[in-house]
C-alpha cells in the first residue's frame, strides 16, 4: 500500500469522526446528569432530514445545520418531559424516540430523498494547506470540523470546570445531595436532555449536509448506537470521546478506502461494521482494563424527593 493510501485514509477520518463525536458529547452531558438517552439514532435521523429540507429550499447550509439542531431538540423535549418529569422508563422511552425518528423522517423526507443539496466545501488555508500530510489532514477540512473541535473544548470546560458543570455532575452522582444544596434536579436533567437532542441533531445534520450532501432514508446507519458505545468507551469524559471518535472513525473509514483502491470487500462486512465496532469497543476495554466502575452513580435512576429510606 502506498503512502497515498494512508494520506487519503487519514484525511477522511475527521469527516467520519465528527458526527460520532458530536452525538457522543450530547450523550455525555445527558448521562452525567443521570439520564440514559438511547434515542440518539432517532434524534440524529430527524436532524439529518430536517437540515436537508432547509438546505434544499434555501441553499443555506448554515441555516440547515441550525434547523437540524433545533428540530432534534424539539423531539428531545418530548423525551425529556416523559423521562424527567413523568419518570417513564428511560430505556423504553429512548427506544421509542429511535422508532419515532425513523418514522417521521421516512414520511417527511420523501420529497428531498436522493436530491443533492448544497453543503460545506473543504477549506483552503493557503500555505497551511500546502504543508505535506498535515496540510491535507488538518488544514483542509470543512468548517464544521473546526467548529467541532471548539465544541469539544467548550463542553469539556463547561462540564469539568464550571459551577454549572459541577451541579450537573452532582445531579448525576447524588441527586438527593444536589437537591439539599438547592439545585433543581429535574430542571438540570431536562436541560441536559435538551443538550443531547441539540448535539445529536447537529451530528445528524453534519452527516447529511457536510458529509454526504444528500439525504437517503436510514442514512444514520447505526451511528447513534456507536455514539452510545463511545460514551462508555470514553468513560463519560469529553476529551476521551475525541480520542475514541478518531479511533472509531479510523476503523469505519478503512473499508471504503480499501474499496476505493479496488480491494474485494464483501458488502455485508461493510454493513455490519458499525455494529461489530460497537461490540468490540464495549468488550475490549472491559477485558483489557478491569478498572472501577466510573459511570455516574445515579445513571438511569429517577429522583423522587419525598422518598423515605
Amino acid at each position: 500500500m502506498s503512502s497515498a493510501f494512508f494520506l487519503n485514509w487519514f484525511a477522511t477520518i475527521p469527516d467520519y469522526a465528527a458526527p460520532l463525536l458530536l452525538a457522543a458529547l450530547g450523550l455525555i452531558i445527558c448521562e452525567r446528569s443521570g439520564v440514559i438517552n438511547l434515542g440518539a439514532e432517532g434524534l440524529m435521523a430527524v436532524g439529518a432530514m430536517s437540515a436537508v429540507i432547509v438546505s434544499f429550499n434555501t441553499s443555506s447550509p448554515a441555516l440547515a445545520m441550525a434547523v437540524g439542531t433545533i428540530s432534534a431538540t424539539a423531539l428531545a423535549v418530548i423525551f425529556g418531559i416523559a423521562v424527567v418529569y413523568f419518570k417513564t422508563n428511560q430505556v423504553l422511552s429512548g427506544l421509542a424516540i429511535v422508532a419515532l425518528g425513523a418514522g417521521i423522517t421516512g414520511v417527511a423526507g420523501r420529497a428531498v430523498a436522493h436530491q443533492p443539496v448544497p453543503g460545506f466545501e473543504r477549506l483552503n488555508m493557503g500555505f497551511l494547506s500546502e504543508i505535506p500530510w498535515i496540510g491535507k489532514i488538518v488544514f483542509s477540512q470543512n468548517i464544521m470540523i473546526y467548529v467541532c473541535i471548539v465544541i469539544v473544548i467548550v463542553t469539556w470546560w463547561a462540564i469539568e470546570t464550571t459551577r454549572y458543570g459541577l451541579k450537573l455532575r452532582a445531579v448525576g452522582e447524588d441527586p438527593a445531595t444536589a437537591d439539599t444544596a438547592g439545585v433543581d434536579v429535574l430542571f438540570y436533567r431536562f436541560i441536559a436532555v435538551l443538550c443531547s437532542g441539540a448535539f445529536c441533531g447537529l451530528a445528524g445534520a453534519y452527516l447529511s449536509i457536510a458529509s454526504s450532501q444528500v439525504w437517503v432514508e436510514g442514512m444514520i446507519a447505526g451511528r447513534g448506537w456507536i455514539a452510545i458505545a463511545l460514551v462508555i468507551f470514553a468513560r463519560w469524559r469529553p476529551l476521551r470521546a475525541l480520542a475514541g471518535a478518531i479511533l472509531f472513525a479510523g476503523a469505519d473509514s478503512l473499508i471504503p478506502r480499501l474499496q476505493a483502491i479496488g480491494a474485494d470487500i464483501p458488502v455485508y462486512l461493510m454493513l455490519a461494521l458499525p455494529y461489530v465496532l460497537t461490540l468490540a469497543v464495549l468488550i475490549i476495554p472491559a477485558v483489557l482494563f478491569k478498572r472501577a466502575d466510573v459511570s455516574p452513580s445515579a445513571l438511569g435512576l429517577d429522583y423522587l424527593r419525598q422518598d423515605r429510606h
Binding site: 451541579k167 452522582e173 447524588d174 445531595t177 439539599t180 444544596a181 439545585v183 452513580s297
Partner: peptide, 27 residues
C-alpha cells in the same frame, strides 16, 4: 444528616462549591 449529603466522587472543595457556592459566592 445521618446519611451525609456529600457527593462521594467529588473533592471536599467541590462539595463546598456545590452546597455553598451560590450563597457564599464561593465560585
Amino acid at each position: 444528616h445521618q446519611h451525609y449529603r456529600l457527593v462521594k466522587r467529588f473533592s471536599v472543595a467541590e462539595n463546598i462549591v456545590l452546597a455553598c457556592g451560590d450563597i457564599q459566592n464561593l465560585t
